[in-house]
C-alpha cells in the first residue's frame, strides 16, 4: 500500500474516529507519519544519526553542512560529526547551538552540570552548585511525598542562600 501523501510504501496505518463518529483511515510512510506527528523517531538514535540531523537542521534545506568552525582549534563541525570527538574545550562554545540538543538527548534532558567542582573554580561556583543540587533534591523529595526530608532540604537551601547574601 502506498502512502496517502506520496509514492513511498505506507508503513504507518491509523484508524481515527472523528467527533461525528466517522472512521477515517490513514496510511502513511514514516516520513509523513512523523510530519503529521503520528509517529516519533526512536529516542535512542545512534550518535552519528543524531549529529547528522543537527547538521541538516543547521544547513537549512540544502545538504551542505554549515561551515561551523571552532576559531580556537580549527575543527569544523563536519569533522566532529564524523568522529564524535571535539577538538578543544572551546568547541563547546563554538558549537553550542548544535550541541545543545545532542547533550540533552545524551544526558536525559539535563543541560547543567551537577557534581564535583574543581578547587580552582572558586567558592562562588561551589555555592551555585550546592544550590542547584539542593533544589533538585527538594523537587525529588516533594515528588516522592517525603515531606520531612523536603522540610530539611528547604532549611538547608535558605541557609546556603543566606550565606550568599
Amino acid at each position: 500500500m502506498k502512502c496517502d501523501r506520496c509514492d513511498n510504501p505506507a508503513t504507518v496505518h491509523l484508524i481515527e474516529m472523528t467527533k461525528a463518529g466517522q472512521k477515517v483511515e490513514k496510511h502513511l510512510c514514516e516520513e509523513h507519519a512523523i510530519a503529521e506527528g503520528i509517529a516519533v523517531k526512536v529516542n535512542h538514535a545512534p550518535i552519528n544519526e543524531l549529529l547528522e540531523k543537527f547538521v541538516l537542521k543547521h544547513a537549512g534545506t540544502t545538504m551542505e553542512p554549515t561551515p561551523l568552525t571552532c576559531q580556537q582549534c580549527g575543527l569544523n563541525y563536519e569533522a566532529f560529526r564524523k568522529t564524535g570527538l571535539l577538538g578543544c574545550p572551546d568547541c563547546y562554545t563554538a558549537f553550542e547551538g548544535a550541541l545543545a540538543s545532542l547533550l540533552e538527548r545524551a544526558h536525559e534532558g539535563v543541560a547543567h552540570h551537577l557534581g564535583k567542582v574543581p578547587a580552582h573554580a572558586g567558592a562562588n561556583e561551589m555555592r551555585q552548585q550546592r544550590l542547584r543540587q539542593l533544589r533538585q533534591e527538594l523537587d525529588q523529595a516533594v515528588a516522592a511525598e517525603q515531606y520531612e526530608r523536603a522540610a530539611t532540604l528547604r532549611d538547608q537551601l535558605s541557609q546556603v542562600e543566606e550565606e550568599k547574601a
Binding site: A111, H112, H113, L114, G115, Q128
Partner: peptide, 21 residues
C-alpha cells in the same frame, strides 16, 4: 594540573557523551 572545566557543562571531555562529571 588545571583541568578544563566550565560551570555550565562541568569537566569538558573530547566526547560530549562524557561531559559533566
Amino acid at each position: 594540573l588545571d583541568f578544563a572545566y566550565s560551570p555550565k557543562l562541568g569537566y569538558l571531555t573530547a566526547c560530549p557523551t562524557n561531559v559533566g562529571t
